[in-house]
């Protein structure tokens, strides 16, 4: 187990310093500390997973990085700049996909390019090419004209991923993106996600990913490092290096090291997980 004291070759992509988030109930004035003293550096090109018991504030942390929620304490920086609000350089893939139901697959993928900052300076043809590229990459060719309600959960997830990538974000923030899928689909998409992330590419060409999951095996399979959170209030309880070499194949799931790491993480959150359902 290594705490987050990695030798940083360069400036971290994301820097969270003593971040806290307190909610005040509007009627009663009751205060709830959702996240407390959360400190973490995320390296450029790193695949970082956050796991923790339900309600530990994982999503709150992600939303604060996205700029959708403001921290009540501490500071979040990206590339040395204070994060003030949402921006296309930090793309989010939401748990429920948040696809626009009135837009076709093609228009969902191209939404940011058409209406947001990512499309600035691109011609219509260039946008089109980019949409096609990512639609093909996630295996949705032929389904471009369909509406979200016509798609299976796995396909919606692919649309959300293509939309995220089409906007060309520097940091990918993913909130349990595979959570709603059945086990088989999830395993297939994990492998695909690593391929799309650029597992086979040079480390410098990879995007930075912050990936929230409640699946410990999923985190071990995907991540370079796993952040384990504890709840009430949510904070970092451990950061685990996943020293399984890449590219990772399905077969690593049966290797001893995979089991060791999974057990180690499970032992860190087991007590709280039991308390949560007690």
């Amino acid at each position: 187990m290594n705490v987050a004291t990695m030798p940083s070759k360069a400036q971290p992509k994301l820097r969270l310093r003593n971040v806290s988030k307190e909610y005040v109930a509007p009627r009663t004035g009751q205060r709830t500390l959702a996240v407390s003293d959360f400190t973490l550096d995320v390296r450029a090109g790193e695949f970082l997973c956050i796991v923790g018991p339900s309600g530990c504030g994982k999503s709150t942390v992600l939303n604060m990085i996205a700029g959708l929620d403001q921290p009540t304490g501490g500071d979040i920086e990206m590339d040395g700049h204070h994060v003030r609000g949402p921006g296309a350089e930090r793309g989010v893939m939401f748990q429920d996909y948040a696809l626009f139901p009135w837009k076709s697959v093609r228009d969902n993928v191209g939404f940011g390019l058409r209406h947001g900052t990512p499309g600035a300076g691109l011609t219509a043809a260039e946008r089109n090419d980019r949409v096609n590229h990512f639609v093909n990459m996630v295996g949705l060719a032929g389904a471009e004209a369909k509406f979200p309600h016509q798609l299976s959960g796995g396909m919606k997830q692919r649309v959300a991923l293509a939309r995220l990538l089409a906007n060309g974000p520097d940091v990918l923030l993913m909130d349990e993106p595979l959570g709603a899928l059945d086990a088989q689909t999830r395993m297939v998409l994990q492998v695909e996600l690593l391929r799309i992330w650029g597992e086979a590419a040079e480390e410098g060409d990879r995007k930075t990913v912050v990936f929230i999951t409640h699946g410990i095996d999923e985190a071990v399979f995907l991540a370079d490092r796993v952040v384990v959170m504890s709840s009430h209030p949510g904070r970092v309880s451990a950061v685990i290096d996943i020293d399984i070499p890449r590219p990772r194949r399905e077969s690593i799931r049966s290797e001893p090291r995979f089991g060791q790491l999974t057990d180690e993480i499970w032992s860190l959150i087991r007590d709280e997980a039991y308390q949560a359902i007690a």
Partner: peptide, 15 residues
Amino acid sequence: QLVRAAQTMGVNRLR
């Protein structure tokens, strides 16, 4: 959530 999604794609308020 859809409004938030648009914000994370760099879509301004009016748009």
